[in-house]
Simulated assay, not measured.
Amino acid sequence: MLAAGLFTGPAAGENTGENRVFGTLESGNSAVLSGAGSAASTAARLLLTAGFEIDSRTLFDQPGGRLHVSAMHQTGDNGTRLVGDFQGFSNIDAAGFTAITEAWYQHHLLDGRLRLKFGKVDANSEFAYVEHGGGFLQSSPGFSPTILGFPSYPDPATSVNLFYHGKSGAYAGVGVYDGATQAGVATGTRGPSTFFGTPDGLFSVVETGVHHRVTGRPGRVGIGAWRHGGDFDRFGGGRQSSTQGIYLVLDQSLVTGPAGRTRLGLFAQYGYADADVSPVQHHAGAGLQWYGPLTDRPDDSAGLMASFVQFSKAPGAGFTDRGELAVECFYRWQAADWLALQPDLQFIDNPGGRGRPDALIMTLRAAISL
C-alpha cells in the first residue's frame, strides 16, 4: 500500500512576505460496504499537523527567503488491512508516528526565477503532483505509485532542491533526497544522518514542463525522471543496484468563473518503472475536480477520478491479476471557515492483484483548521 496525496504542489513555496502559524486535524472513518478481506470492516485514523513559517525579513532583514518547520502526529487503523488494496484508499494511513516531518529553508534569486530549497522536504510538495488531484482521498492522485522510494508522507527526507521558472512559463527542477526508506529506514522520524551516511542510496528526481494557457484557461504539463541508487531485490532472484523510471503529469482548467478562477479542472498522470523490481510497471490516472459546484456554495468541491496500476508480470512477482482499478467520487462541504466534511465513495477492482474480492468503501473525512 502507498500513502500519498497530502500535497498539491509548491503552494508552501510561495513567498508571501508574511509569517504564519498553521495547524490542521484530519479524521477519516471508513466502512467497507462489500469485499472486506478480514473480520474487521471499519477503520478510523487521525492526523494532526502543526507548524510555522517565518519570512527571511524577520530572520535577518533580507527579502526572498522562508523558513518552514512542521510536525505531524498520526494514529489509528490502516485501511489496507480491510481490503488488501495496493494503491491505498486513504492518503493519511500510516503505521503511526510523531515527528518533525518538514524543516526547510528556501531562497529566491534572480528576481524570483531561481529557487533553492534545502532541509527535510516532502518531495511530493515539489515533484510529480497534480493540483486538480489534491481533493481526492485515494493515494495515487498524489503521485504515481510507480515511483519507488519516493520521499513523501509519511517519510519526507533530507534533500537539496533547485528550481527555475522562466518568463515564458517553462520550468525545471531537480532534487536529491535521502533514499534510506528503501533499506527500511523511516526517514520521516529521523534527521539528516542517513543522507550523509549509511545506508547509502540517494533518490534523485528531475522534472521539466510548462505552465500554459489554452483559450485563456491555465494549465500545466510536466515530465519527470527519477533514479534510486539503493539496492533492490529482483523478482526473479538476485539483487540489482539502482532503478529508475519516468512520469508525466497534466493539469488543465476546463471552465473558469469570475476573475479567472477555475471552476472545473482536469488532471492526468502516467508512470513507468522497471518490472523486474517494481510491483507496478505502468500507472495511469485521470480525474475531474469541480470547484464551487453549487452557486451558493463557492468553497465546496466535488470530484470523480479513476486510477489503474498494471502489476509486474515478472516471474516471482506473485500477482494473479493483471492490475488494480480504483474509482473515486467525493463531495467536500465547507461547513465553516474552520471545518470541512467530505463523504467519499471508492470502488476497488482486483485489490492487490492477488484474487481478493472487489471492494466498495465509504469514508467520511473531517478536516479542522486550528
Results as ranks from 00 to 15, higher is better:
54 I>K: 12
54 I>H: 06
55 D>S: 12
55 D>M: 08
56 S>G: 06
58 T>F: 08
58 T>G: 12
59 L>V: 03
59 L>K: 00
60 F>V: 14
62 Q>V: 09
67 L>E: 10
68 H>G: 06
69 V>W: 07
73 H>Y: 14
74 Q>S: 12
75 T>H: 10
77 D>F: 04
79 G>Y: 09
81 R>M: 14
82 L>N: 09
83 V>D: 09
84 G>H: 03
84 G>L: 01
85 D>P: 02
86 F>K: 06
87 Q>V: 03
88 G>M: 01
89 F>N: 07
89 F>H: 12
90 S>I: 05
90 S>V: 10
91 N>R: 05
92 I>T: 11
94 A>E: 02
95 A>F: 04
96 G>Y: 12
98 T>S: 15
98 T>N: 13
99 A>I: 09
101 T>K: 06
102 E>K: 08
104 W>R: 02
105 Y>S: 08
105 Y>G: 09
107 H>T: 07
108 H>V: 05
108 H>D: 13
109 L>W: 14
111 D>V: 05
111 D>P: 11
112 G>L: 10
113 R>E: 10
115 R>Y: 01
118 F>S: 11
119 G>S: 07
120 K>A: 11
122 D>A: 08
122 D>T: 01
122 D>G: 12
126 E>N: 08
128 A>C: 00
129 Y>Q: 00
130 V>N: 05
130 V>M: 00
131 E>I: 03
132 H>V: 01
134 G>R: 00
134 G>L: 00
134 G>C: 01
137 L>H: 12
138 Q>H: 05
139 S>K: 02
144 S>G: 04
144 S>H: 06
148 L>R: 13
149 G>L: 13
150 F>G: 04
152 S>I: 03
153 Y>T: 04
155 D>F: 06
155 D>E: 02
157 A>C: 02
157 A>M: 04
157 A>N: 05
159 S>H: 06
160 V>I: 13
164 Y>D: 11
165 H>D: 10
166 G>H: 13
166 G>K: 13
167 K>V: 14
168 S>T: 14
172 A>I: 15
174 V>T: 15
176 V>M: 13
178 D>E: 06
179 G>F: 11
180 A>R: 06
183 A>D: 04
